[in-house]
Amino acid sequence: MPFWDPDYLITSELQSEGPHVAALSRPGFESHLRHREGQSVHTMVHIAPLIDGDGTQFGWLSSVLDITEAKSLEEHARQQEEKLQFTARLVAMGEMASSLAHELNQPLAAISSYSTGCLNRIEQADMQQAELVDALQKICRQAQRAGAVIRRIYEFVRRSEPRQASCDLGEIIIDAAALFEGEARKRGVDIRLDVEAHLPQIMGDRVLLEQVLVNLIKNGIESMPGILEEFRVLHIMANTSGENSDQHLRVAISDRGSGIADNDASKIFLPFFTTKPEGMGMGLNICRSVIESHHGRLWYEPNPGGGSIFKLTLPLRAKRSP
C-alpha cells in the first residue's frame, strides 16, 4: 500500500518533483499521507537539504508532522463561522421583512381610511368638493410613501447580492448531505450521492448554495416517513451539461416520498406555503431566490417512480447582472 493518499495522488506527485525548489522557497507544505491502517492523515512536511563542509549537497532531511486534528478543528471553526454568517443574514432578512411590513402597512392603512372617508362623504348632501380634493391629495402622498418603502427593499436586495467566489458544487453537496447523516439514519433514509467527478468550479456564494441543498435534502427526508423502508432513498445527482458558453451544472434531488398534489405544485415556491404543521413554508422560496440570484433555475417534477424530483441548473459562465 503506497503511503501517498491516492485521493491526493496528483498533488503529491507534483510536490515530489522538485524538492529543492520547495525546500528553498517555503518552510513546508501540507500533504495527505495514508496511515498503515488505511485512514488519511493530513501532514505538514518540512524538507531541508543536507550540505557537507564543502557546501556540496549530499541528501535531504525531511520531517513529517501529523496535523489531522489541527486541520479538523480549523474546518469545524470554518463551518461554525459559515453557519453564523448564514443565520445572521436570515435574521437580518426576517427583521427587515417584519419592519418593512409595518412600514408598508402604515401608508396603506392611511390610504384605506382616507378613501373610505371620501366614499362616506360623497353620499352625503353637504359634501364639499374642496374637502375631497384635500383627502385625495393626502392619498397620493401616502401612496408615494409606500413606494419609497418598496424602493428601500430593492436597495436592500441589491446590497445582499450573493458574495461571489469560486466554489466546488460537488463538495457543497457532500457537505450538505453529511449534515443529515444522523437524521437520515434515524429515519431510515438512505442518501445516495451520484456526483460526477471533477465538476468544474462555479462562481457563487458557497453558504447560500449549501443552504439550498440543505433545504432540498431536508424536504426530501421529511417526505418519506410513510414509505416502506426499502424505498426510502434520497438520490442526489450532479453533472455538467451543455457546450461552451451554454455549459451548466445540473443537480437533481429525488425522493420516493409522498409526492406533491397537482393542486399544490403551483404553490410550493410561494413564501409561507406549507403543508407541515411545524413548517414555515420558506424553504423552497429561499432556494429559488438563491438559485435565481445565481442566474440558475430551480423547478419541481413528479418522480415517475413516485415521489418528487427537484432539479436545478446553474450556468458556468454567469451572464452579466443587469
Partner: peptide
C-alpha cells in the same frame, strides 16, 4: 398620517 386619516374617516 394614520392620525389624520382616522380623523377624516370618523368625521366623514
Amino acid at each position: 398620517a394614520i392620525r389624520d386619516a382616522l380623523n377624516w374617516l370618523l368625521r366623514s
